[in-house]
């Protein structure tokens, strides 16, 4: 993968001097959050609220998948499976056992962690390309299972899922979603800049070298996978509460691929990038409704083009150290 600004001829690189200043600054996050919070004051029609809520949920999904694909370099083609596990677990508990939705969250956490272990446990020892296919297979297994079981409502799914606090206003729900998603984005970013986040990147870059430094590739991958599962599962809860219904049709391979698209387009491993990618992919189809037939074809071509021309994505991950870290003043002597 070539690093930011080394692509040469591409038009995007010409602005990279300015872009790098923007990419590395701290303000895009807060500005974006402010924009999200002000959104309903600009336009609070049901259509706009619906679009904004959906966009926020896809941001959370993209950020979660980025942990797996971007940070750790594992291609997960069945990410929608975790989304489904979260949505169905909370949906079933809320509708059949009348649990308040928030009370289902701990169960969802447990369920997604278990799903992560069950899927990741045996497969993360495999070569990376096998993993891609197996996750794809698992995505389909979960969808087909939801489709076939009675408890999940079969093909028509579950209806009547209450809101987060039990039937709140759509605006309230939107704000709750924004807060949760913002926390999820910050959480993923913080994990990325920590000891475990570094370990993910070491494994992504070179498993052998990482292992030689005592990083267990398997455990580190499993951690990434489980983290991704948790993010996806919680997004699933929001999704169910938003639509008040879940059905197998929302968890197709197509849906997994779209989340992946957001991550790749925005910039694998770049938290601001994938947020941007998710927003673009959620809003663009709405803006170009006349071209709806072209949508997925264009996505496919775009995936290829991004990989060929700009593999680091629109908003590349930062690989430089902060000036503070690059030159820490105090350097105690080496132990003798």
């Amino acid at each position: 993968m070539s690093a930011p600004g080394t692509g040469g001829a591409s038009g995007l690189d010409r602005v990279s001097g300015f872009a790098r200043g923007l990419f590395d600054s701290r303000w895009p996050g807060p500005v974006l959050l402010l924009a999200a919070l002000l959104g309903p004051f600009v336009n609070a029609t049901p259509y706009a609220l619906n679009l904004m809520t959906t966009t926020a949920i896809s941001v959370m999904l993209a950020v979660g998948l980025n942990i797996v694909v971007g940070y750790c370099g594992l291609l997960d083609l069945g990410y929608a499976a975790f989304f489904a596990v979260g949505a169905y677990t909370s949906g079933v508990l809320a509708t059949r056992f009348d649990w308040p939705l928030l009370a289902t969250v701990p169960v969802v956490l447990v369920a997604t962690v278990i799903a992560g272990i069950v899927i990741g446990g045996p497969t993360l020892r495999l070569r990376s390309d096998y993993l891609a296919i197996v996750t794809l297979g698992f995505g389909e297994i979960i969808r087909i299972t939801a489709n076939n079981l009675d408890v999940t409502g079969g093909p028509s799914g579950i209806h009547g899922i209450p809101g987060l606090f039990g039937g709140e206003d759509k605006v309230v729900f939107y704000y709750a979603t924004v807060v949760i998603v913002a926390l999820a984005v910050i959480g993923a970013a913080r994990l990325g800049r920590s000891r475990i986040g570094r370990a993910w990147r070491f494994v992504r870059e070179d498993e052998d070298a990482a292992a030689a430094m005592g990083v267990s590739p398997y455990r580190v991958k499993l951690a990434a996978y489980i983290a991704g599962a948790v993010w996806g599962g919680l997004a699933g809860v929001l999704f169910g509460a938003h639509l008040s219904a879940v059905s197998p049709g929302s968890f197709r391979f197509l849906d997994s691929a779209l989340i992946l698209m957001a991550v790749v387009l925005g910039g694998m491993g770049s938290n601001p990038g994938v947020v941007l990618g998710a927003i673009v992919l959620a809003v663009l189809p709405e803006a170009l409704r006349d071209l709806v037939d072209w949508q997925y074809f264009v996505f496919g071509v775009l995936l290829i083009l991004v990989m060929l021309v700009r593999p680091q994505g629109l908003w590349p991950a930062r690989s430089r150290e902060t000036p503070q870290d690059a030159a820490r003043a105090v350097r105690p002597e080496v132990r003798a």
């Binding site: 694998m268 074809f297 496919g300 775009l302």
Partner: peptide, 18 residues
Amino acid sequence: PRLSLLITAVGASFALEY
């Protein structure tokens, strides 16, 4: 990197299907 190739292949699949 292998990841890039796999993603390209997924893109190709999408492009052909749609």
